[in-house]
Nucleic acid binder design. Structure first.
Length: 502
RNA sequence: GGUCGGGUGGCCGAGUGGCUAGGCAGAGGUCUGCAAAACCUCGUACGACGGUUCGAAUCCGCCUCCGACCUCCA
């Protein structure tokens, strides 16, 4: 597949032809979670999006180094308290215990969503020397200043030296001056409101602390990503991703730090995922407008009428482009669940069927192959998963027509049928990875020979009854099976069965 | 208040200067012992007002509504 890949670059605000720094290789950095709490559903959307980007880049032949960090220090709250420290205080644990607990929880959630682990998952606390070194370099370059044991990035000087603070977010430094509220801690220490801490002095009660040339302290939040991306991906790498809300100040500051330390811009392409809304509004714990992944899976929430499996939730996310806001509602999830079921039913049928080798005019070939090609092109066009999915659904329609004999085998060549199998396998298995739910394998790949044998027996007995026109017995069997969450469907080629989800 | 991004049919959501998105829901039909599923057909659309154009829902302006960011946030 030699399709030209285009990605939407947040700095230029347009789609651009993707050209890797080193042919054949891609370095990708994505801002990972701050492990002070259970992983947020919106966070899951971001990581699912980048997982698909990661998988796609590999599919088209790139060797990808995917770095996604774990933030376990430096991320401060409004009141200046470190998120990790606060978590530790509330749970009466060591900060590292808190980090470990939520890191494990995060990994588990990523597994449930069927995302691949990144190539490297560095922790901020494991890279203190690298961060100190970067602060020293920025100081040496004259773009930072020391105040009372803290080190601040000097945005004024950076601009004076032709730095471009605001390239990503479109913010002007003069405007920041007038807009910034002055209720922030340490605000008075800064020379300019737009300056930001790259190293902070630790107060006596601050438990996460390290020695540094400037005294005991801890790294600024924005610094870790600059230091770790530099260490593992080099001065210039291909893709930097994260949620939309990280653009400012986090990513803007990251660019400034990279330029300030090594005169290198870091990422060539900045990709940002959009927000996940709940009933049209931003999720917020304070006003109750929030739902956790667990609540979705268990149905234990006032916002939804039933439980939804992880793969349905993932499918729901994929039906929307990563750069659009996605509104999560019960109605939308219900619709997604039905669509997902239809897609997977067709896929399941496809897996177990082979072309009989019939000859014919193959009149469907052209249309089908165009759909397949389009699905690939959609992915190359800034990873347009909803559009690619729409092609798959058009193929589902073809498959169902074939199944119902509205389309004959003579209308599809064996080669084209094989193409359909390949594209379904590629998208459902390799790219979207929506085929396996934690509670079981919906494609029927798991060893269930015993169950198959029993079901075949039951279906045979019921069909005997149907031949005798003993409808009462036939319906009794079907109803009883339904009670036990097994649904029977009588088709032209005999009866099929499946375990129902809810 | 500033910056940015949006408002698409009953719902969710793509996309485009003239050519079907797709899913869910709805109407009619086919198949079927019934049911379910599936298939076929159909309808409803691009926030308001101006402008550019042979032609705009798609470009421009203005208005309005919504969201994100500006303060920790994916």
């Amino acid at each position: 597949m030699t399709t030209a890949l285009h990605v939407y670059h947040s700095v230029t605000r347009q789609k651009e032809l993707f050209i890797p720094e080193t042919p054949g290789f891609i370095g990708m950095y994505v801002c990972g979670p701050t492990v002070y709490n259970d992983v947020h559903l919106g966070n899951c959307r971001t990581f699912v999006s980048f997982d698909i980007i990661y998988r796609y880049l590999q599919t088209i032949g790139y060797q990808v180094r995917y770095v996604r960090n774990i933030t376990d220090v430096g991320h401060l709250l409004d009141d200046g308290e470190d998120r990790m420290s606060k978590g530790a205080r509330l749970e009466k644990k060591e900060p590292m215990e808190v980090a470990q607990k939520y890191t494990v929880g995060f990994h588990n959630m990523m597994r449930i969503f069927q995302t691949l682990p990144p190539s490297i998952e560095p922790r901020a606390t494991g890279h203190i020397p690298e961060q100190i070194e970067m602060v020293e370099t920025i100081l040496k370059n004259g773009l930072a200043y020391i105040k009372n044991g803290s080190v601040y990035f000097d945005t004024q000087k950076y601009m004076y030296n032709k730095g471009d603070y605001g390239v990503l977010s479109g913010r002007k430094i003069d405007e920041l001056l007038s807009e910034t509220r002055d209720n922030l801690k340490n605000q008075s220490e800064k020379n300019h409101p737009a300056d930001f801490a790259i190293w902070m002095k630790a107060s006596d009660e601050h438990i996460m602390r390290w020695n540094s040339p400037w005294g005991i302290g801890f790294p600024g939040w924005h610094l870790e990503c600059s230091a770790m991306s530099l260490k593992y991906l080099g001065e210039v790498f291909d893709i930097h991703g994260g949620g939309n809300d990280l653009k400012f100040p986090h990513h803007e500051n990251e660019i400034a730090q990279n330029m300030g330390s090594c005169q290198c811009k870091g990422a060539k392409y900045w990709l940002h995922t959009n927000m996940l809304l709940l009933n049209g509004k931003k999720m917020s714990k304070s006003d109750g407008n929030t739902i956790s992944p667990e609540q979705l899976f268990t149905g234990n929430s006032e916002h939804i009428s039933k439980s939804y499996s992880p793969m349905v939730v993932k499918f729901f996310m994929l039906q929307c482009h990563y750069r659009s806001t996605l509104d999560l509602t019960d109605a939308a999830l219900l619709a997604a669940e039905k669509g997902y079921k239809r897609l997977m039913e067709a896929y399941k049928w496809l897996l177990n069927i082979n072309h009989p080798g019939t000859n014919g005019d193959f009149s469907q070939d052209a249309e089908i192959n165009t759909l397949i090609e389009s699905a690939h092109l959609d992915m190359a066009d800034d990873f347009n998963t909803p559009k690619a999915l729409s092609r798959l659904f058009e193929l589902v329609n073809k498959l169902n027509s074939l199944k119902d004999k509205h389309i004959g085998w003579e209308q599809i060549s064996p080669a084209t049928f094989e193409n359909i199998k390949q594209v379904f396998s590629l998208f459902i298995n390799d790219l979207f990875a929506v085929d396996i739910d934690v509670e079981g394998d919906l494609t029927g790949n798991q060893d269930k020979s015993l169950l198959d044998g029993l079901m075949n027996l039951i279906i045979q007995m019921r069909n005997d009854a149907r031949l005798r026109k003993d409808w009462a017995t036939a319906d009794l069997i079907r109803d009883a099976l339904k009670e036990n969450k097994v649904e029977l469907k009588d088709g032209k080629d005999g009866s099929s069965w499946q375990v129902t989800e809810s």
